[in-house]
Design a binder for these strands. Structure first.
Lengths: 241, 241
DNA sequence: GCGGCGGAGTTGTCCGGACAACTCATGCCG
DNA sequence: CGGCATGAGTTGTCCGGACAACTCCGCCGC
């Protein structure tokens, strides 16, 4: 008889099953830690270990003060799902690069983001992508903005593959850092409300910036995921002009 | 002024620096949790969070009862280091696949290993590899054993790339599971002692098995890492006959 | 309406402790 | 010499609690 797995593993499996069976659909929030503690009669520590593993598995994302959001039903194989899966691939690539930084990703400040994205007159190469699930249905929209210096890669852009790798090889540069932004500084409430309304359609905002060794921003990806409650509270100048 | 990072992050950075500077060389053991608690005046919980991050970063491996072993000075970019880096690549590939299971990998029993590896008369395709570090010096030796049914991939074997991916594409199969073995069931003490002696040369043993959906073993990789104290305590029939 | 303030709710950090599970060396005994 | 038992040392699991940081919503004044 095999030994009983640890408590947190059983809780993790339980939650994983609940997600897989749709009792916690993608885009919904899991019960809070306190609720799980109460219903499962375990300490918060144990619940957090189980949730941490779901985060590592890519099923859940958490934000302090907001909750635990289900973002996938099954662990991603980290594979290419569809032709136009541009940002998905980049995300995969960056996840690989970022395996270390899975937790503790640095945050982009609002100013940094504005600077990186919205320098007026900067003709960033913009690549639009659609992230598709394994069933072929769209999961999220995405944009990738490439620094004009490296815009010549456009004809080489892979249908499947990591964009930044192509640029690295083509130009002999090296991505030194990947910075991720999920939530941002507070913004004027009116705009926030408008975005919140819109977020019922587009959902959570994701942004990644790829930085070279000399600090230059190589490319920026941003994408929207169809999550209900994780609203985006960041404003990009390029978007509303 | 930026806010002070959390305590565990500072401890992590401190240990990371100590490793990078060689104060904790690769192959040595870190101070025990209790020692770190005492010297840093923090709770064991905080120390464990810092160590967990070092494990996630790939700098440290831990084993219950044994200690925390330094296995790398800097976080791996997860990249190809050298031509003959066959198992290294596979490990990278499997790490990617296994991002989820970074913790809690299932274990191979001794019998399973013997069955997978040492069925007499089974002409497994054996690929020998040498894992090289970024400086070109060997880090570990490796063997990859491919199931005879898929041995026809030999001419296709990549010098750089994941072997199992090649097989998947070539034969239209799909790896459903990756099982990893680090330490194994106890073995006769005499053999253990002999191995322990030898382990001062070859070090820790690693083994991975790639399983198809129907349960068939697609390939097995095993490798030895030059770690001092993490001795190998598993016996493979194929090895001593 | 617009903006700011505040408070309830939620997750993040950190402490202290206890016991279980595992590793490894030692020593005893056949 | 081989095998087993023992025990110290180390990491894994789990509990309980406290406060900090953050999110989000509603209230209120202008």
């Amino acid at each position: 008889m095999p030994p009983r797995p640890p408590l947190y593993a059983r809780i993790e499996a339980r939650l994983r099953d609940a997600i897989a069976e749709g009792r916690h659909p993608v885009g919904s929030l899991l019960p809070t830690e306190a609720e799980l503690c109460a219903s499962l009669k375990v300490s918060r520590h144990t619940v957090r270990e189980a949730l941490r593993r779901l985060v590592d598995a890519g099923l859940v994302e958490r934000r302090q003060g907001a909750g635990s959001l289900v973002i996938a039903r099954e662990p991603s194989r980290g594979e290419v799902h569809a032709i136009r899966n541009i940002d998905g691939l980049m995300q995969y690539a960056s996840d690989t690069r970022l395996q270390i930084g899975r937790r503790g990703l640095a945050k982009l400040t609002r100013e940094e983001a504005a600077q990186a994205l919205a320098e007026p007159g900067t003709p960033w190469l913009k690549v639009e992508g659609l992230r598709l699930g394994q069933d072929g249905r769209p999961l999220a929209t995405a944009e990738v903005l490439i620094h004009p210096r490296y815009a010549a890669v456009e004809p080489d852009l892979p249908e499947r593959g990591a964009i930044y790798r192509v640029i690295e090889q083509r130009f002999g540069v090296e991505v030194a850092e990947v910075v991720q932004e999920i939530s941002a500084a507070p913004m004027p409430t009116a705009v926030a409300a408008a975005l919140r309304r819109r977020s019922r359609e587009v959902g959570m905002f994701f942004m990644r910036r790829y930085v070279l060794k000399d600090g230059e921003t190589l490319l920026v990806s941003r994408s929207w995921h169809p999550a209900e409650r994780f609203t985006y509270a960041m404003r990009l100048r390029r978007q509303d002009t």
